Simulated assay, not measured.
Amino acid sequence: MAEELTARAAVTSADVARLAGVSRATVSFVLNDTQAHRVSDSTRARVLAAADQLGYVPHAAARSLRAGRSNLVLMPASVSAVGRLVSAWLDDLHSELERHGYTTVLHAGRFPDAVGAARAWAELRPAAVVALDGDGLTAEAAGVLRRAGVRATVAFAARPAEGVYTIAFDHARIGAIAAEHLISRGRTTIGVVMPKERGLDTFARPRLAGAEGVAARSRASVRAVEMAYTRESAAELAARWRESGLDGVFAYNDEYAALLMRALQGEGISVPEDVAVVGCDDLVVAALERPALTTVRLDLPAPARIADIVHELVGTGKAPEMPGVEPILIHRQSS
């Protein structure tokens, strides 16, 4: 029984080399797909068959030491909570990074400040950090990453920071555009949906601030309204809508907007006659809603281009600037 419970020793490249009848160096050349060393097709097939038979998995840390750098691209895990548009974009980005030989990892830690986050990220020694919610990154945090050997720090942020390759993405501008439109349609008391889901406040807070900034320069007022992405939460909010006095709402994104619009209609509240509704992302479903949903379109950069920039930064430390994300109001029947 004791023997059955004893953990089996990990399979090593030496075991693969012994089974395949080759050197450990040859195993390394084959499994790391090293182009600078030619290995015959028959030898390559023997090594791959031996590795498969033994269930050998290369050691990422050891491979990074041999290569002189990691192949990891770290992304803060808050990006996993974003809507369908960005989730699909991130899936494509992961694939494009794989094309360059990188593995994307999500880091789920919660930290009180940017430096604390950078120190935790640096422990994994990634080749690059890509922060979709990059407004919190500071020059000091970028310095921590740089001294730990991180070759590229890329952030989608409203303002640049020293040592960070910044792609302009101002969430406050999204909220401002939505509020400007609602006010131009004669709405004076505007709600801004703040999702209850964890992680989304990073994006929702600046959108609220943008709407508040526009309202402060007009006769309109803006009020935050909390809502979870559930039918129950939307129904509870819709049931209180008449007493709130709100005649317009920016609902964070198209998914929340569609859910809230259905709940409002279920309470007999007409869209847009009683309440004008604006979403964000311009998903396919936005144009299919009844009434069709007014939204803020976000033209995100091509994932292939972002992957190329990460690769250039890792390899050379330099990359050309690229245009930021410019929100565009798409007016439809819901407002």
Score class of each variant (00 low, 15 high):
Glu3Asp: 11
Glu4Asp: 10
Thr6Ile: 10
Val11Asn: 07
Ala20Met: 07
Gly21Cys: 00
Arg24Asp: 02
Val27Arg: 01
Val30Trp: 00
Asp33Thr: 14
Thr34Cys: 14
Ala36Arg: 10
Val39Thr: 05
Asp41Pro: 10
Asp41Trp: 08
Asp41Tyr: 09
Ala50Val: 09
Ala50Asn: 01
Asp52Tyr: 11
Ala61Gln: 13
Ala62Arg: 06
Arg66Ala: 06
Arg69Asn: 00
Ala77Gly: 09
Val79Asp: 11
Ser80Asp: 13
Arg84Trp: 05
Arg84His: 07
Val86Met: 08
Asp91Val: 10
His94Lys: 03
Ser95Arg: 06
Ser95Cys: 11
Glu98Phe: 13
Tyr102Ala: 03
Thr104Cys: 02
Gly109Pro: 09
Gly109Met: 02
Ala114Gly: 03
Ala117Ser: 12
Ala117His: 09
Ala120Gln: 13
Glu123Ser: 10
Leu124Glu: 13
Ala128Ser: 00
Val130Tyr: 04
Gly136Ser: 14
Leu137Gly: 09
Leu137Cys: 12
Ala142Arg: 02
Gly143Asp: 03
Gly143Ile: 02
Val144Arg: 00
Leu145Gln: 03
Arg147Glu: 15
Arg147Met: 13
Val150Tyr: 03
Arg151Ser: 07
Val154Gln: 01
Ala157Lys: 04
Ala161Tyr: 14
Ala161Asp: 08
Gly163Cys: 07
Val164Ile: 04
Val164Asn: 10
Thr166Trp: 11
Thr166Ser: 08
Ile167Val: 12
Phe169Asn: 09
His171Tyr: 15
Ala176His: 02
Ala176Thr: 00
Arg185Ala: 10
Thr189Ser: 13
Thr189Glu: 06
Val192Arg: 02
Arg198Ser: 06
Leu200Asn: 07
Phe203Glu: 12
Arg205Met: 07
Pro206Gly: 03
Leu208Phe: 05
Ala216Val: 01
Arg223Glu: 15
Val225Gln: 12
Glu226Thr: 15
Thr230Val: 02
Arg231Ile: 03
Glu232Val: 01
Ala234Thr: 05
Leu237Glu: 08
Ser244Met: 07
Val249Arg: 04
Asp254Gln: 05
Ala258Met: 12
Leu260Glu: 07
Met261Arg: 03
Gln265Asp: 05
Gly268Gln: 08
Ser270Ala: 15
Val271Leu: 01
Val277Met: 00
Val278Ser: 04
Cys280Glu: 07
Asp281Phe: 04
Asp282Gly: 02
Val285Ala: 11
Leu288Met: 14
Leu288Glu: 10
Arg290Glu: 09
Arg297Trp: 12
Asp299Ser: 11
Pro301Asn: 04
Ile306Gly: 01
Ala307Met: 00
Ala307Lys: 03
Ala307Asn: 02
Asp308Thr: 00
Val310Cys: 06
Val310Asp: 03
His311Trp: 02
Pro323Glu: 06
Gly324Cys: 01
Gly324Phe: 02
Glu326Ser: 11
Pro327Tyr: 00
Ile330Lys: 14
Gln333Ser: 06
